[in-house]
């Protein structure tokens, strides 16, 4: 206990001044960095199935599919679940949001 009390006294710190070890006080040994990824989309929800694009689309959810349910971007920059869009263009090859002709710009992966 006596030890602990003496530690709090500033003079002790000053006394130690000359003996400071070489090198930085703190060095990094390991860093576990955490990041979250999400689709780089303008709208969080898929306009076709009304589920968040980060979650699997309704169809995949009910089928309990294990593989990823990815996102697709059109030239118009609108994005949907790829599964949803595949079905959509069978009936109407236009973007459900802006009615432009649908051309795939890129797929998420």
């Amino acid at each position: 206990m006596a030890d602990g009390q003496s530690l709090e006294e500033p003079p002790k710190v000053k006394k130690a001044k000359g003996k400071t070890p070489t090198g930085p006080l703190f060095t990094l040994k390991k860093w576990n960095a955490v990041a979250m990824w999400s689709w780089d989309v303008e709208c969080d929800t898929c306009a076709i199935c009304r589920v968040q694009v980060m979650d699997a689309c309704l169809r995949c959810q009910s089928d309990k599919k294990q593989e990823e349910c990815i996102v697709v971007w059109g030239e118009c920059n609108h994005s949907f679940h790829n599964c949803c869009m595949q079905l959509w263009i069978k009936q109407n090859n236009r973007c459900p949001l802006c009615q432009q002709e649908w051309t795939v710009q890129r797929f998420g992966s």
């Binding site: 060095t27 390991k30 860093w31 576990n32 960095a33 990041a35 990824w37 689709w39 890129r106 797929f107």
Partner: peptide, 18 residues
């Protein structure tokens, strides 16, 4: 990956130092 954006969550990250 394609089409993904990263957000760092430093509140969760951690590590060890000497």
């Amino acid at each position: 990956h394609n089409g993904r954006k990263l957000t760092w969550h430093h509140i969760m990250s951690n590590g060890s130092i000497t």
